[in-house]
Nucleic acid binder design. Structure first.
Length: 204
DNA sequence: CGTGTTTGACCCGCGC
DNA sequence: GCGCGGGTCAAACACG
């Protein structure tokens, strides 16, 4: 259950932290200027966006608030929808089973947008209408070479205002944004100082 | 022209 | 054995 793998929790929490980072990215253009990560403190970049649950679909549920009930419901649905897949091999061996891919984590968040940018580059490879769900499920693969991480995005059946994002596997690379950030930090460390300062409120 | 999306077809496991 | 449902492929297409 919870204590099966300490590294698992760390991995999940790491993904969550990256996910939080991504929300910052999504406010600005994530690919052009990662230095805009830090939005003005007095501005809520995405007022309708909040991570409510994050789940390990192998059975454990990590909830950091009282929304565990919702998380449980989502986990039940998702595990039901994916349990078969966890036991089967894809026809071409492209799809790996759980043991090969690593952890599977589902984020359930309130968002108007179905596609949110988490800093990684994803390529859509499928779309499927799901039984008992009015909304289709979208399938994405990480575009990075050698990275087999996948994610599924679908709207919550019970609450359409929530989006369920299921990550399968762990990235073996940094986010493109972070790579860019690191490179720029090395090449021109001073270039970042101007924006490290809080946004000037005197602009009004 | 390179890259990403769309979408119909196909494959596979499971339940009946 | 058959049908259903979910996951993936890959050709065609769109776009910058």
């Amino acid at each position: 259950m919870h204590n099966k793998l300490p590294s698992l929790q760390n991995s999940i929490k790491d993904q969550k932290s990256r996910f939080s980072l991504k929300m910052d990215f999504s406010h600005q253009n994530p690919n052009s200027n990662p230095n805009y990560t830090f939005f003005p403190e007095n501005v809520n970049p995405m007022p309708d966006f909040e991570v409510s649950d994050y789940l390990d679909l192998d059975g454990s549920i990590f909830d950091d608030d009282t929304s565990s009930e919702k998380g449980m419901a989502a986990a039940t649905e998702l595990s039901g929808a994916t349990s078969k897949n966890s036991n089967r091999k894809c026809k071409h061996g492209v799809g790996k089973n759980k043991s090969e891919l690593g952890v599977r984590v589902a984020f359930r968040m309130k968002s108007e947008m179905e596609v949110t940018d988490d800093g990684y580059k994803w390529r859509k490879y499928g779309k499927k209408s799901i039984k008992n769900s009015p909304n289709p499920r979208n399938y994405y693969k990480c575009s990075s070479v050698g990275c087999n991480v996948k994610k599924r995005i679908e709207r919550d059946v019970k609450d359409q205002s929530y989006v369920v994002t299921t990550y399968e596997g762990v990235h073996n690379h940094e986010t493109p944004s972070m790579v860019y950030y690191n490179q720029m930090s090395i090449m021109a460390p001073n270039a970042w100082t101007f924006q490290a300062s809080p946004p000037s409120s005197s602009s009004t």
